[in-house]
Nucleic acid binder design. Sequence first.
RNA 1: GGCGGUGUAGCUCAGCUGGUCAGAGCAGCGGAAUCAUAAUCCGCGUGUCGUAGGUUCGAGUCCUACCACCGCUACCA
Length: 507
Amino acid sequence: MTNHFYITTPIYYVNDVPHIGNAYTTIAADILARYHRQLGDDVFFLTGTDEHGNPAARAAERRGLSPLEHVNEMVKRFQELARRVNASNDFFIRTTDPEHERSVQKFLGKLYDRGDIYLKSYRGLYCPACEAFYAPKDLLEGKCPDHGTVCDEVEEENYFFRLSAYQSKLIEHFDKHPEFVKPQSRFNEARSFITGGLEDISISRATLKWGIPIPWDESQVVYVWVDALLNYLSALEYAGDHDLTPEFWPASYHMMAKDILKFHAVIWPALLMAAGNKLPEHLFVHGYLLMGGQKMSKTRGNVLDPFDIINRYGADAFRFYCFREVTFGQDGVVSIEGLDARYNTELANDLGNLVSRTTAMIEKFGGGLVPAATGSSESDIASLAGFVTTDATAAMSRVDLTGALEKIWVLVRRLNKYIEDEAPWKLAKDKTAANRLELVLYNLAEGLRICALLLQSFMPETSAEILRRLGQATKAGGLRQGILWGGLKTGGRVIAGEPLFPKIERS
RNA sequence: GGCGGUGUAGCUCAGCUGGUCAGAGCAGCGGAAUCAUAAUCCGCGUGUCGUAGGUUCGAGUCCUACCACCGCUACCA
């Protein structure tokens, strides 16, 4: 029986400019998706865009377009970002998809029928940009802390969801599922927020038009966050040629940055409970990529544009850097200087050059054919490869992406050292050492093949290219059997091509 | 204010349940080698493990207080 693995990114707000944080989350989810495909799991990987709400509606108005015309254009940049980072998503959901809208209405209708939604008049300070109410204390000089705009004193009748009714059930779920939210610190944070007391939340807006109508009261639209969260469920219903829900729900992982933890760890589970759905197995909450120790922001001017980076370094290098440099789950500092350093030392010098020297030596000393294991197969390289595989896959199962890369590099470094220790160029001059030479070349090629397989989810293009140069089938990427020592297909032609990662020269 | 976290070599950080735990990578210095993208490999660190106490035969590793920074949360007066 094949294991099903459903992973999601948040849906990104279509009116914003795609930034490095979107890319980061998407790549993280993609790495896990690819990894699980490699394990042979049946994977569904979802990303998409959140398209309703006031900011998009107003931007459309300013441009003299209908909201839909506007978002149809804006969505392209996010689809482009997914392509450029090499995301292997199985579907791209848009909350303006008619199927999604119907699904949201159906879901809310269910909660309404069950009595978990009621009408209540609410009065407060409302930020139109956030589409949220603020307590006077939360405002900075009377203005929205996020947008710096004046909040309006608003009184409206809204539909409320009985979030408060789910407090104890939520805590129970947290206590029964200590791995529900990862890392642990985020679990604690979410749990303590719940124990601190939950209030019912407004799930509709009366003043807004650009949204999904409340099915039993079309004068109101669904609050964007409820609309957005439901994408995880609705997409399964129509992304395939049949309803995928039975196979893929509950989700294995929702990936997200720390700023939207509460929506996912509190409101989302409560909504699911109310509707009688299963809860996602895990939420994984990652940190921020910082520039100069500060959160990136347009006003500070300390932003890294993911498109720029990919244009200069390639998608693989970018993917590698994000997870090599910053311990996944924590905040971490990134910079162009850091990227250059990692690129040159680890990609060009360690990995790229290892590929070059290995293929060059097989070319010069081994007739250009992928060597076979000869004589005794005694090799501490083989055992190290085994340990590294075990460690790296264990790290992946903990979603410790940084740890996995660290382990893989132990093998990369060891292979470089192995070349120095064995000095094939000396063995090549000694006629009695022919068998030894072939074994050394074999160990190098086989070690490198295993590196390539372990790196496949992180750097799919590089991985395929390494395999190609070693005369291996590019698709032979299985991690259950293919990863075992001895899987090298021998006899094929090695390709000694251009450097995988040409050095970056910096002024 | 409450809760939680962090503070270890110049830099980024590993160090789980106390006894080679004083480490890794990068940067720097010296050397070897030449298959390779002058790429690699080897050697070199006297670090008050935030501060001050305490528990223990023994503490980055446990306890207390304090300092700094961060996150969540609250708001009495």
